[in-house]
């Protein structure tokens, strides 16, 4: 079998080299691929990212890397479909379920949107929550309005601006700089695992959880079209079988495990209280966020996607698949 031509997929990982995406998720996928193709296709992950996070898709398109993971928020000008999972109040704590739901929605509604690259998989990470930095938990619109809030740019920041909250927005990796210095008294947009990863535990007093979560983040795993065409149909099928929802669930599970570990630390190390959101608060915020959903549906429809149907389908799939 060694005589056979070998294809090697140069797979980029933009997270820091020690992150589980680079040390476990992508290497596991590599093992699956190698096994499924009897060693005809293997992967190589460079020790350092070949491009900055916003440029992952572009770098695959240009052949700098063969495959890479793209945070969909950075490519809103290229694709609209996968942002269905980043609408307000469609998220569940069951990230693997959301990932499968997104893949199903992709296949049914927006498969044509991926041009220049071939979509290998998609996944959604564990949802963002609302955090208070002082002793009063945030559990009403008025609680929010009385504070200055750090928010993830995009959905969450726009929602906060809409209801009149003072917002400091910035990339997640710079959250620590703002939050640790007492510039704000609350923050929205991070899941518990990110609280731990960005060392925000000591600056956070309580977390408020909605029944349907306020927001989550989705990623696309894409491969260069020409590279994909180099692979024989037989091997393509084998790779597809270990990608799609199988890969998406596997990746998402790492965030679920991370959240579990972080929540344990909420109790044992940082004494962060966890509250369930008042249903009136959740209803009011859901209502206030309708304009964002309408905006997404319009953008999707403009792109030739049946926006309303895709949105409903995703929401139904998430609730059907969710076990958490």
């Amino acid at each position: 079998t060694h005589a056979q031509a070998k294809t090697r997929i140069l797979t980029n990982c933009f997270w820091p080299p020690q992150h589980y995406m680079c040390t476990q998720v992508l290497p596991t996928w590599g093992e699956w691929v190698e096994e499924a193709t009897d060693g005809r296709v293997s992967i190589q992950i460079p020790p350092k990212s070949l491009a900055s996070p916003p440029e992952q898709w572009g770098s695959v398109e240009k052949g700098i890397a063969d495959a890479a993971v793209q945070f969909n928020g950075f490519v809103a000008n290229r694709v609209t479909g996968p942002l269905v999972a980043m609408n307000p109040f469609v998220a569940s704590a069951d990230a693997p379920a959301m990932s499968e739901a997104l893949w199903d929605t992709y296949q049914k509604f927006f498969a044509d949107e991926y041009k220049g690259v071939h979509a290998l998989s998609m996944w959604v990470i564990t949802p963002a929550e609302v955090y208070s930095q002082n002793d009063t938990p945030i559990n009403s619109i008025d609680d929010l309005k009385s504070r200055k809030i750090w928010a993830l740019p995009g959905t969450v920041a726009n929602l906060m601006k809409k209801i009149g909250v003072g917002v400091v927005a910035g990339p997640a990796v710079q959250a620590n700089e703002v939050i640790s210095r007492g510039v704000v008294d609350g923050h929205i947009g991070l899941s518990p695992v990110s609280i731990a990863a960005f060392q925000l535990g000591p600056y956070t007093k309580s977390m408020t959880q909605f029944k349907t979560r306020i927001y989550s983040t989705s990623f696309s795993f894409v491969i260069n079209e020409k590279k994909w065409a180099e692979i024989s149909p037989e091997d393509q099928a084998a790779i597809t079988a270990v990608s799609g929802p199988k890969f998406g669930r596997m990746a998402a599970q790492f965030w679920v495990n991370g959240d579990k570990a972080a929540l344990a630390k909420f109790k044992s190390e940082w004494d962060i209280k966890v509250y369930d959101a008042d249903p009136a608060f959740e209803a009011a915020l859901t209502e206030a966020s309708k304009f964002l959903t309408a905006g997404w549906i319009k953008r999707a429809t403009d792109k030739g996607i049946d926006g309303q149907a895709a949105y409903d389908f995703y929401v139904d799939r998430v609730s059907a698949l969710s076990k958490l």
Partner: peptide, 12 residues
């Protein structure tokens, strides 16, 4: 030129 064609915006 690509930034123009794709129509990218700055993050913040």
């Amino acid at each position: 030129i690509e930034a123009h064609e794709i129509g990218s915006f700055t993050v913040v």
